[in-house]
C-alpha cells in the first residue's frame, strides 16, 4: 500500500525535463503560495497534533481543492496519524503527494486524434472570458508542430470583434479561418467549416463558440443546436468537445463543468491561466467529482505555453521534491 509513495517522485522526475521546467515555472506561484507554507508548518520534529491537522485542512481549502476532496484526504490522514502510521512531517508530505496523484491519475488521459478522420472536430466551449480563443491559437500551433493540417471556425458570432480575434490567430499560425459576419448563426458557420475542411482534406477543425454562462438556458440550448447540426453533417464524425475552464475560478468551476456536461457532453477539459493563480486545487475537485479527462493546461501567455496534462509532473511541481 505504500509502494506508490516511493514510486511517484521518481516517475515525476523521469518526465521530459523541458515540460518539467515549464511547469515548474508556471506553478511556482502555487508552490510558494500554499504548499511551502504547509511545509513550514511541519518543519522540525513537531508533533502532528490535531490543531496542526486543522491548519492543514484549511490550507487545502485555501488551495481551492474543494470540501469533498479535502475532507477525504484529511479523514484518511487523520486516521493514519491516530494509528501512528504517520509520525513525521516528511511522511505526511509523502502521503499528501501520493493522495493527490491518486486523484489525478484517472483523468490524465491525453487527447488522441484518430488517423484519417479528416476532419477531426474539436469544439471549444466554456463561460465568458476563460480563454477559449487564445487556447485555440495555442492548440493550432501545437497540432501544426505535430504535422497536422488545421482549420479554424469562427463560431463566436456574438461578442464584438471575436471573429477578428480568431482571424489574427489564424494569420499568426497561417491556418485558414472560416467565418461569416458577426451576428450570423454559429451552427451555420461550423457547418460551413466542416464542409470546407472535408473538401480540403484538413486533419483537424477547431471550432470556437461564444462564451456563455452555464445558467443561461437559451444559450445552452443554442449550443445543443450546434451539436445537432454537427450530427447532421456526419453523425459519426470523430470529435472532441473541450470545456475550457479558468483555473482562477473557485468551486464554481465544478458547477460549470457539470452543467455543460449535462447539456452537450464534454469529452475533455482544458485548464487555463494556471500561471496566474497561486492555487491549482480545482483540478482535484474536478477529477474527483466528474472524472472527465483533463487534456491540456495553459501555463503562460506564449503561443507554446499549452501543455498536455500530466498528473505526476503536475503534483510533483506543486509540492516540489525534497532533496
Amino acid at each position: 500500500m505504500f509502494g506508490f509513495r516511493k514510486k511517484s517522485p521518481a516517475a515525476a522526475a523521469s518526465d521530459s525535463d523541458q515540460t518539467r521546467a515549464r511547469l515548474d515555472h508556471g506553478l511556482k506561484r502555487t508552490r510558494e503560495g500554499v504548499f511551502s507554507q504547509l511545509r513550514s508548518l511541519f518543519g522540525g520534529d513537531q508533533q502532528l497534533d490535531p490543531g496542526i491537522l486543522d491548519d492543514f485542512e484549511d490550507h487545502l481549502l485555501t488551495a481551492d481543492l474543494g470540501i469533498r476532496v479535502t475532507t477525504e484526504i484529511m479523514d484518511d490522514i487523520r486516521a493514519r496519524v491516530r494509528k501512528k502510521a504517520i509520525t513525521t512531517p516528511d511522511q505526511l508530505m509523502d502521503e499528501l503527494q501520493a493522495a493527490l496523484i491518486r486523484i489525478l491519475e484517472p483523468v490524465c488521459v491525453p487527447l488522441e486524434i484518430p488517423e484519417n478522420s479528416r476532419p477531426f472536430l474539436i469544439m471549444m466551449i466554456g463561460v465568458n472570458g476563460v480563454g477559449k480563443t487564445t487556447t485555440i491559437g495555442k492548440l493550432a500551433r501545437l497540432f501544426m508542430q505535430q504535422g497536422a493540417s488545421v482549420m479554424l471556425a469562427a463560431g463566436d458570432t456574438f461578442r464584438a470583434a471575436a471573429i477578428e480575434q480568431l482571424q489574427v490567430w489564424g494569420e499568426r499560425n497561417q491556418v485558414p479561418v472560416i467565418s461569416q459576419v458577426s451576428g450570423s448563426d454559429s451552427a451555420a458557420v461550423i457547418y460551413d467549416a466542416l464542409q470546407s475542411a472535408r473538401a480540403r482534406g484538413t486533419d483537424i477543425l477547431i471550432a470556437d463558440t461564444a462564451g456563455r454562462l452555464h445558467t443561461r438556458h437559451n444559450l445552452m440550448q443554442e449550443l445543443q443546436k450546434v451539436m445537432r447540426v454537427v450530427d447532421k453533417f456526419d453523425s459519426g464524425l470523430p470529435r472532441e468537445t473541450l470545456l475550457v475552464l479558468d483555473a482562477t475560478t473557485g468551486q464554481n468551476a465544478l458547477v460549470q463543468a457539470q452543467e455543460f456536461h449535462q447539456v452537450v457532453g464534454i469529452t475533455g477539459i482544458v485548464l487555463t491561466k494556471l500561471d496566474g493563480t497561486a492555487r491549482g486545487g480545482i483540478v482535484f475537485a474536478l477529477a474527483r467529482e466528474l472524472g472527465i479527462p483533463i487534456r491540456f493546461i495553459g501555463v503562460g501567455e506564449q503561443l507554446d505555453d499549452l501543455r498536455p496534462f500530466d498528473a505526476e509532473a503536475f503534483v510533483g511541481a506543486l509540492l516540489m521534491e525534497r532533496s
Binding site: G33, L61, T62, A63, D64, V127, G129, D246, T248, T249, G250, Q251, N252, A253, Q256, G276, T277, A278, R279, I282
Partner: peptide, 12 residues
C-alpha cells in the same frame, strides 16, 4: 473582477 473567482481573488 470575475465573481466566480476562487481563493486567489484576494491576492489579485
Amino acid at each position: 473582477i470575475d465573481s466566480m473567482m476562487g481563493q486567489d481573488a484576494v491576492n489579485a
